[in-house]
Every structure is written in structure tokens, then in C-alpha cells.
């Protein structure tokens, strides 16, 4: 399983949905699981983004599908960044020499 960071911003439409049905937010986690991903942690944040999600998925293809599927509803805009643990990163740099 690879890890991905999903930075998401609500659209105007998304804000309306959130106000009317806030519990909808948590239903999204089940859909992510149905598509083969798993939400590891999830925060609502202030600033540039509205939510930060850490999601595990088997491949870039799967996370791309999740990203498009969720984005297609017009409620969120998602920026997906592939992530790796800091140890893996440090070892990769060390190993590269």
C-alpha cells in the first residue's frame, strides 16, 4: 500500500452541502474504501485548504480514480500528493549515493 496526501478545498456547492448535511463528510470515507483506498487520518484545517486527508491506496491508478470520483461531484477540489514515510525518504537519499 502506498500513502497519499489529499489536500482538499470545498467549492461553493460543497459548502452548501456541508451546512445542510455535515454527516455526508464521513460517508465519503466508506466510498474511498469501496474504491480500494483507506483513510488513515483526516483533519479539518484553517488556511489554504479545508481538509487534509492521509489515504492509503494500492497504486497511483487507484488514488487517481478516487480523486476524480470525489472531484466529479463538484463539491471538492483535491490536490493529491504521493507521500512516503520520512525514514523511507531518508534511506532513499542515503542509498542513492
Amino acid at each position: 500500500m502506498a500513502t497519499y496526501l489529499l489536500l482538499s478545498t470545498l467549492t461553493d456547492e460543497g459548502r452548501k452541502t456541508l451546512k445542510a448535511r455535515p454527516e455526508r463528510l464521513q460517508e465519503v470515507n466508506k466510498e474511498i474504501e469501496a474504491m480500494g483506498g483507506r483513510v488513515v487520518s483526516q483533519y479539518a484545517v484553517l488556511g489554504l485548504y479545508d481538509f487534509v486527508n492521509v489515504v492509503e491506496a494500492p497504486s497511483n491508478e487507484v488514488i487517481a480514480r478516487i480523486s476524480v470520483e470525489l472531484g466529479s461531484r463538484g463539491t471538492v477540489q483535491i490536490t493529491t500528493l504521493p507521500a512516503m514515510s520520512v525514514e523511507t525518504f531518508v534511506n532513499a537519499i542515503k542509498g542513492g549515493r
Binding site: S41, V54, T80, L81, A83, M84, S85, V86
Partner: peptide, 8 residues
């Protein structure tokens, strides 16, 4: 928690 990421 801490991750290294690709992208932005």
C-alpha cells in the same frame, strides 16, 4: 506524523 511528499 511526518511524510515526505511529491508535488507542491
Amino acid at each position: 506524523e511526518q511524510w515526505a511528499v511529491l508535488g507542491k
